[in-house]
Simulated scan of single mutants.
Amino acid sequence: MQSNCGTSEVLALAATLEEMKLYGKDYAQTTCLHAKYLANLLDSSGLSVAGKQFGFTETHQVWVTIGTEQQAWQACAKLHNAGIRVYPASLPFVNSWGLRLGTNAMTRLGFSTNEIKKVGQWMVDILLNNVEPEKVFKDVQSLMQEFSIKDVHFTFKS
């Protein structure tokens, strides 16, 4: 038998709940706005983004349809080689494999639509314009150096 009083989990949960009480609404709204912005940008650039008929998304998620499972994994690998983290997924409602994108981490780091536009353009360059991911990697690194994990947004100020 094992017992765990879980005090570390309780403290983390308490801090998270307090943080969300103070900043949760603004964080959620900004995250969703960023997702809509990214989805519109990708769609208008020629990628197939699921949900256009209802405004693409009402959450932090954007689904880019790719095709087969293998094609989705290949697209994922290209973006990962550029330093852009996405996840391949069997997308519900569209009967296709694609990429699941999320804007919550970018929002938390303090990205504005200017930075999200850069990320979206890099994705288009790699997936549609056949730009080598390694050529984009340095730009991604440079952008990320501007946003310290020590200065996340929608959190307590130190």
Rank of each mutant, 00 (worst) to 15 (best):
L11D: 07
G102H: 03
L128C: 09
F156H: 05
V119F: 02
A82H: 03
L33K: 10
G120Y: 00
F156M: 13
V140F: 11
L109H: 05
E19N: 11
S96D: 06
M144P: 13
Q145F: 02
G98S: 11
Q74E: 15
V49T: 00
H80V: 12
M1N: 15
F93K: 14
D43A: 15
V119H: 01
Q71A: 13
T155C: 12
E9T: 12
C5A: 10
L101Q: 04
A39P: 12
V131C: 08
T103K: 11
C32N: 13
L33E: 04
K135A: 12
C32M: 10
A89Q: 10
A77K: 11
P92T: 12
L101C: 08
N130C: 05
G102R: 01
T7R: 15
K150S: 15
T16P: 03
C76L: 03
V152A: 04
T30Q: 04
T65L: 07
D139P: 00
F111E: 12
F111R: 01
D151T: 15
V136T: 09
H153M: 06
F93H: 14
H80I: 10
F137N: 06
Q70C: 02
G83V: 15
W63Q: 06
N81M: 10
R85L: 13
K21D: 12
L128A: 04
C32Q: 12
E58L: 02
W63N: 10
T16E: 09
I66Y: 02
A75T: 06
L127F: 11
S48N: 06
T59C: 03
N4Q: 12
L11A: 07
H80F: 13
V136S: 07
N104V: 05
L127D: 10
Q74K: 09
N104H: 01
V119D: 10
V131M: 08
L109D: 05
F137H: 15
L38A: 02
P88G: 07
A89R: 09
L22S: 05
A12S: 14
T7N: 12
Q71I: 10
C32H: 06
S148Q: 08
T59L: 06
A39L: 05
D26T: 06
A15F: 07
L101M: 13
S158L: 07
L143F: 01
